Computed example of a mutant assay.
Amino acid sequence: MMDPTQPDNPDSRCGFVAIVGRPNVGKSTLLNHLLGQKLSITSRKPQTTRHQVLGIQTRGDTQTVYVDTPGMHEDEPRALNRYMNRAASSALKDVDVVVFVVDQTHWNTADEQVLEKLTHVKAPVLLVINKVDRMDNPDQLLPHIEMLSKKRDFDEVIPLSALREKNMEPLETAVEKRLPQSVHLFPDDQLTDRPMRFLAAEIVREKITRQLGAELPYSVAVEIEEFREEKRTVHISALIIVERPGQKKIIIGDGGDRIRRIGEEARHDLERLLEQKVMLRLWVKVKRGWSDSDRALKSLGMHDRQG
């Protein structure tokens, strides 16, 4: 019987690549630049990514399915953090390559914990040292690589800058040559397995995170209540969920000024993504304790993805 995963073209390759690391090392920025299009949301605030996001890159005969993951961090009792840790850990199952991202010459207990999770991973592990363009003393890089190489026999060590798109080609080459022979699993023009409703919610949440920074804790979620196309315009209604009335006031701002800015920035990104005019409506609702409730997380689509 013919194996459906074996291609007629012997040069055809396809496989899954997990991007892992502690919070705020630049995993989402790396994915966006690998794809050449914004898919994962980014901000300077750690733990911005909450979900596994598949990013699909097809170049010629090779299709690489990247899995961007939430940052792995110390276990905390909140349901949201438990969900994020599960999502990050499950991404390591059955992948063909792991890209372990670290930040310059910074190494701490959180990096050590991620390394421990890779102990039993059989797939090749590529170590990416990100943000090397920000290093005050580039001479520290080689000794740092030597130190890290003693912690694990990495298949390759690649210094780069995801934000500046410097030295990205060696990473793509290193990944592609380790992918198995296979038919492509997705259409060549597909960017992600996530629906547009999900991407719309993530874009709105990114604008909130970027605007508010330290003003607001992580207790913000976005739920898309309407997503429809009418006369070449996409109409999107998004509900911003917070835990306390004070947080609602912060997001709305004086006279609604802040929520208008959030909406304008999100709409611009959505129009670029959808290549259509977008009408975006935002409002805010208080839902106490949602980030510490498994039931509330499931109602917001934050549940473990099977398969």
Rank of each mutant, 00 (worst) to 15 (best):
T29V: 13
T29I: 08
T29R: 01
L30E: 06
L31F: 05
H33S: 07
L35T: 09
L35H: 09
L35E: 14
G36F: 14
G36V: 03
Q37W: 07
Q37T: 03
K38C: 04
K38G: 12
K38T: 13
L39S: 03
L39F: 10
S40G: 03
S40F: 11
S40E: 07
I41K: 12
I41S: 15
I41C: 07
S43G: 08
S43N: 13
R44F: 10
K45W: 05
P46F: 15
P46L: 04
Q47C: 12
Q47W: 15
Q47F: 10
T48D: 11
T48P: 09
T48V: 14
T48W: 13
T49W: 06
T49P: 15
R50M: 02
H51E: 14
Q52A: 13
L54M: 15
L54C: 09
Q57H: 03
G60I: 08
G60Y: 02
D61V: 00
T62W: 01
T62D: 04
Q63A: 09
Q63E: 10
Q63K: 01
T64A: 13
T64N: 07
V65K: 13
V65G: 10
Y66L: 06
Y66I: 06
V67E: 12
V67Y: 11
V67A: 12
D68W: 05
D68L: 01
P70L: 11
G71M: 03
G71W: 05
M72Y: 08
H73F: 12
E74A: 07
E74I: 15
D75E: 10
E76G: 13
P77R: 05
P77I: 00
A79M: 03
A79L: 06
A79C: 01
L80A: 03
L80P: 14
N81C: 03
N81L: 07
R82I: 05
Y83M: 00
M84I: 07
M84P: 01
N85L: 05
R86K: 14
A87F: 05
A87Y: 05
A87C: 04
A87I: 06
A87E: 14
A87M: 02
A88R: 01
S89R: 10
S89A: 15
S90H: 04
L92V: 12
L92G: 08
L92Y: 03
L92A: 02
K93H: 01
D94A: 14
D96S: 06
D96N: 06
D96Q: 02
D96Y: 06
V98P: 02
V99P: 10
V99K: 08
F100W: 08
V101N: 14
V101K: 00
V101G: 15
D103G: 03
D103E: 12
D103C: 00
Q104A: 12
Q104T: 09
Q104C: 15
T105H: 08
H106C: 10
T109I: 15
A110W: 01
A110C: 01
A110S: 09
D111K: 10
D111Y: 11
D111N: 03
D111T: 04
E112C: 11
E112F: 11
E112V: 14
